[in-house]
Design a binder for these strands. Structure first.
Lengths: 334, 334
DNA sequence: GCAATTTATGTAAACGATTACATCACAATC
DNA sequence: GATTGTGATGTAATCGTTTACATAAATTGC
């Protein structure tokens, strides 16, 4: 079933059918209803590809994630999803698996489908040129999880440096001096690097010597957190507090600490990052930094929609708050 | 940049350009390279919509999830993702939010995009007609998380009844008689209903009287698990063991039990469902039923690809194993 | 009652690929 | 050397919409 077949049956032109379907107010109600009725009867299904071809754009938008495992990205994805569906658009997703090549492939795929826009989630280093290229091709982009202050790129992020600084600072305020850091592959990822620097700066600002032996860089994951913590525990002079830069890492670390027979926070204070709901259900409930995963998703999608509907305009940039959530996993050093 | 522009520049016909791009072996190497080079130079991007229109199908496939929060579905999604990307296809995702209407809207969207197939993840009740309709329109479907034995529908699932039966049975083997059940909205969802029945049957097979007061049906989620457990704890005669039919519910329940000052498994045995990695990192590590989330995703995608490539054929149906994983959260009733 | 405006509909040309079919050159066969 | 076969390329129709423009009919204003 196609519009022209419907047109034939209704004894009108395809233009009228198209209008009846897309701009109902443009066709006389009586006729419109007749057309709609025929479409329904014959099970007409709109052919998006044909429309996309003619209109030279689609109503699909692409989202790029490193991975969707881990509750954080899943929340952002969910928020994006909801907004997208509100706008009756389609969402094409891709996982880069932290690989540049895979990312390139996916972006190409998005271009081939002529997506209206792309949301980059927590992207790596230096995609700025890629994004500018896309914008030039009229594909609007937004970046989440980062703040790209001195660029002309849309973003909805938070201050990774400050968030890590605050967390470290909190530990210091509890008199901790030997503070371990368990962090993802920060050398490869802009926002992790910023967090690393936030940690360093907090130490520096309080006259605490940075000790490379106290930082473990690892892949994200529960097991990795556990292993990293074990490593820290075996240090000649183990830390009295640990900042695990993801709740998943922290939960892994927690299990390692308990297994070694230590108490949290009695023997070791532990602070996480992300603020996933789960952190509140740990034993003890995990102090953490809440990153605005849902809000970023929501806002980023809105920003994208605005860009798309109003043409380019100037960059829209939002830096949301990431708040320290104090629960029970940290205590003052005796 | 379009094929015909490239054709003009190269002094050949569009057909040749199309062939150079799609069936490289069909055009003389020298000419092919010249065309490819021009395409590269002029930043040619393939126009998927145009091809889809002409070919009357797309290389996109749709996936439907109730929601993507909760680690389980996220894992399945990830597995699907990987397979899809291996096949160089595009993945359109939609969240039904457990709503029939939303599901219908998304399916329509998929149809409009002429997806090659749809993966239904853990679908509700009686979509069988919907699916048969889609198949008739040449949109191949696979259902995961369910086994639809006596139908002609592709599925890659596991035996929900048996999985729940086994878990309950295990508790019974530890001499428990009052076994609580915390479960999602089983009245609305086929697979939850089957699990409920598995629980009932296990009781029955061991001569234990079913007690409706011991089952709490709730939305999935940590908080809900916690509340449900609280409710169970306040019973005049609380259960000595609880089967929480999702690890998330179980973790919520666990926190509730601890908060009330009871021990797991000393006072109350607890068993989860799903077998997410996280369950191993609880305190105590959670005994659970491992559902083959990744495998279902992988296999379902493969089944779909085969359907698509080979035309319809007979239904492919796989019932994978869901194993009981015994850890530390259950003990024998004294 | 006529011109001017508005509203409803039709006409037809795109959009950018794919592909059946036609053509042509050349090699292989007897 | 005529015939057949093979491989490379071209021709042109087609997929199902959208939309600028044309036209016709109805409404308005004076």
């Amino acid at each position: 079933m196609t519009m022209s077949r419907i047109a034939k049956i209704a004894g009108v032109s395809v233009a009228t059918v198209s209008r009846a379907l897309n701009y109902p107010e443009k066709v006389r109600p009586e006729l419109r209803n007749r057309i709609l009725e025929i479409a329904r009867q014959y099970n007409y299904v709109y052919h998006a590809a044909a429309a996309d071809l003619k209109r030279q754009k689609s109503n699909a938008i692409g989202v790029l994630f490193p991975t969707t495992i881990g509750p954080l990205f899943a929340e952002t994805l969910m928020a994006i999803q909801e907004k997208i569906q509100e706008h009756h658009m389609a969402l094409i997703v891709g996982n880069t698996m932290y690989s540049k090549a895979e990312e390139a492939r996916l972006v190409k795929q998005f271009q081939e489908r002529r997506v209206a826009g792309i949301i980059f989630t927590g992207y790596g280093l230096g995609q700025e040129n890629l994004i500018r290229n896309l914008m030039r091709q009229n594909i609007f982009c937004v970046v989440t999880y980062e703040n790209l202050e001195d660029t002309d790129i849309n973003y909805v992020g938070f201050d990774n440096f400050k968030a890590a600084y605050d967390a470290t600072n909190y530990l210091i305020s509890l008199r901790h001096k030997r503070i371990g850091l368990i962090i993802g592959p920060y050398r490869k990822m802009g926002r992790l690097l910023k967090r690393f620097k936030g940690y360093q700066q907090a130490l520096k600002d309080h006259g605490i010597q940075f000790d490379a032996a106290l930082v473990v860089s690892t892949e994200p994951g529960l097991l990795e957190g556990k292993q990293a913590m074990r490593q820290l525990l075996h240090l000649p002079e183990p830390p009295s507090a640990v900042f695990a830069v993801s709740d998943h890492l922290a939960i892994g670390a927690l299990s390692s600490i308990k297994q070694a027979g230590f108490q949290v926070p009695g023997d070791i204070s532990l602070i996480g990052f992300d603020g996933v709901e789960l952190a509140a259900y740990c034993d003890p409930p995990l102090t953490t930094v809440r990153v605005p995963a849902r809000d970023m998703g929501r806002l980023a999608t809105e920003v994208l929609m605005k860009s798309i509907n109003n043409g380019v305009k100037r960059a829209m940039q939002y830096c949301l708050d990431a708040d320290l959530i104090i629960r029970k996993s940290c205590s003052e050093l005796k």
